[in-house]
Design a protein around this nucleic acid. Structure first.
Length: 496
RNA sequence: GGCGGUAUCGUCUAGGGGACUAGGACACGGCCCUCUCAAGGCUGGAACACGGGUUCGAAUCCCGUUACCGCUACCA
């Protein structure tokens, strides 16, 4: 049986055929999860590198599961990641008339036929096949109906679906990731393209939309590999040029199973709220299923665009193990200039009460200096806010009671003496410089017969309220003379 | 069950017939640096699923087995 093509006369916007057009087509049935984000990222990188277009299509045809809230979550996630899309968002549900028209064209051209079998009958036959351990495949009985009989049933108002008649032969394509993949057509059943209520089935809607959107490269998860031969048949029957296909490997959970909610944080927004930088998230995701080759790992967005290649695409599913994400975030955090980091850290600093909306200090040289001061020892934005807090000297300052006990009240007498001597020594300084402080404080340590660290650590706790900070002299400079001395005195008072 | 896909350290990966006593990164251990914590440096343990071929030679090519994953709806 030879397949017939349907003339394609819908008018299309004129787009040079060499321009790459890719799309991300999520269904709005939940948050944007990391697997979807990775697919979006790959498409975006490819488009940006090729100077093409990255389009967004919301596949909202499943009215029961789709929500506006999910659509917003997808927008928010993509925006946060910086994966900006071109042109208007396409809502699949709005294209129903075209989906129906395309199905109709195939029916009229004889590439598809009406099927009057009810879901119940089909279910029955499926069970029967399963019982005798046979693979069920629709037996085309309705394709053998006489034309008169078909007309009669239609006239009688009998409900029917439209099935695509899969021609004989073999369907194969040159996948960008997998090279040649091929399916014997005998293993593809005559699939439904239009339901009895007139709405399209997934494969129908996708192909109709991808043709209309002039998609040149369909790049998606490899769970779509077995949909591809069906879609290729549809392209052919519709007389449309085939896009190139790329099937990316899946992302699995730690247990090797398909990633799902029970694997913990899988929404990109989870990581946003955990203080992860968007570029670190992208960097981490891009390495799941792609490698630039060699030892390259930490990359800026621009570098990713430049380096992204078909050749580096992997075929094996990757396990989503976020241990490396924290490390990667720390790398990006320290490499970012304070000016670039400040806006990214804004939300966290506001949440932690260090800044307010539109705070002028957020763009001040002092603030940038502070970020540079602490960023290297941070892995997340939360770390950054925590470490920066002691230097907001206008804010109330308290020392964690647990630290008061462990660092000030333990050996209270010695600690008190150390703190008061240090305070006196620092007060006597003519210049508030690291060099002068170091000399003075090491002298204090010597006087007490202690290692310098034994003096520095109580001071650190006294002035930062923490056991972790940059070098203590720089800390004292950053905090300033008056506040430093004041905090030292307060800490000494606590050491009893 | 049928069809399709995949298979290198715990994890992410380099590797595309000899350069492999298999490299890097995360994580873990040790050491160095050091006023704490990071960062950084050095270092240790840790992998080519199995079996057949092809070849002078295979992690790399072919076949099979096994395991895992996906699809198998009038879901997307």
């Amino acid at each position: 049986m030879s397949h017939r093509t349907v003339p394609h006369h819908a008018s299309q916007p004129r787009i040079p055929h060499h321009v790459v057009r890719v799309r991300f087509a999520p269904s709005p049935t939940g948050y944007l999860h990391v697997g979807g984000a990775r697919t979006a990222l790959f498409n975006w990188l490819y488009a940006r590198q090729q100077g093409g277009q990255f389009l967004l299509r919301i596949e909202d045809t499943d009215k029961a599961r789709s929500t506006d809230e999910s659509t917003r979550a997808i927008f928010d996630g993509l925006n946060w990641l910086g994966l900006n899309w071109d042109e208007d968002v396409v809502y699949q549900g709005a294209n129903l008339p075209r989906h129906q028209a395309d199905a109709r064209r195939m029916l009229d051209a004889g590439a598809a036929y009406r099927c009057f079998c009810t879901p119940e009958e089909l279910e029955q036959r499926r069970k029967l096949a399963a019982a005798s351990k046979e693979a069920f495949k629709y037996d085309r009985r309705c394709d053998r109906l006489a034309p008169d009989e078909v007309s009669k049933r239609v006239a009688d108002g009998m409900p029917f679906v439209i099935r695509f008649r899969v021609p004989e032969g073999e369907t194969s394509w040159d996948d960008i990731v997998h090279e040649t993949i091929s399916f014997p057509n005998k293993d593809i059943e005559d699939f439904v393209i239009l339901r009895s209520d007139g709405t399209p089935i997934y494969n129908m809607a996708v192909v109709s939309d991808d043709i209309a959107m002039r998609i040149t490269h369909v790049m998606r998860g490899d769970d779509h590999i077995s949909n591809t031969p069906k879609q290729i048949q549809l392209y052919r029957a519709l007389g449309a040029e085939l896009p190139r296909f790329a099937h990316f490997p899946m992302i699995h959970g730690l247990d090797g199973k398909k990633l799902s909610k029970r694997h913990g944080a899988t929404a990109v927004s989870d990581y946003q709220h955990l203080g992860i930088l968007p570029q670190a998230m992208n960097n981490f995701l891009v390495l799941l299923g792609w490698s630039p080759g060699g030892d390259r790992e930490v990359m800026s967005m621009d570098e990713m665009i430049q380096l992204f290649s078909e050749k580096g695409l992997l075929r094996k599913a990757a396990v989503f193990d976020t241990k490396k994400l924290d490390w990667m975030n720390g790398q990006h955090l320290s490499r970012l200039s304070a000016e670039a980091l400040a806006p990214l850290a804004m939300a966290t600093f506001i949440r932690e009460g260090l800044l307010t909306e539109n705070d002028p200090t957020a763009t001040s040289p002092e603030f940038y200096k502070l970020l540079d001061f602490v960023k290297e020892r941070c892995r997340t934005l939360d770390d950054l806010a925590r470490l920066a807090r002691p230097y907001f000297t206008k804010l109330p300052f308290t020392i964690d009671p647990a630290l008061v006990d462990s660092h000030l009240r333990k050996d209270a007498a010695v600690t008190k003496a150390l703190l008061t001597d240090s305070t006196t020594a620092l007060e006597a300084l003519t210049g508030w410089t690291p060099e002068a402080m170091e000399a003075a404080l090491r002298a204090v340590a010597e006087k007490h017969g202690l290692a310098a660290g034994k003096v520095f650590q109580p001071i650190r706790v006294a002035v930062t309220g923490s056991t972790v900070s940059p070098g203590i002299f720089e800390v004292l400079v950053q905090i300033g003379r008056d506040v430093s001395l004041q905090r030292l005195k307060e800490a000494a008072a606590l050491a009893t």
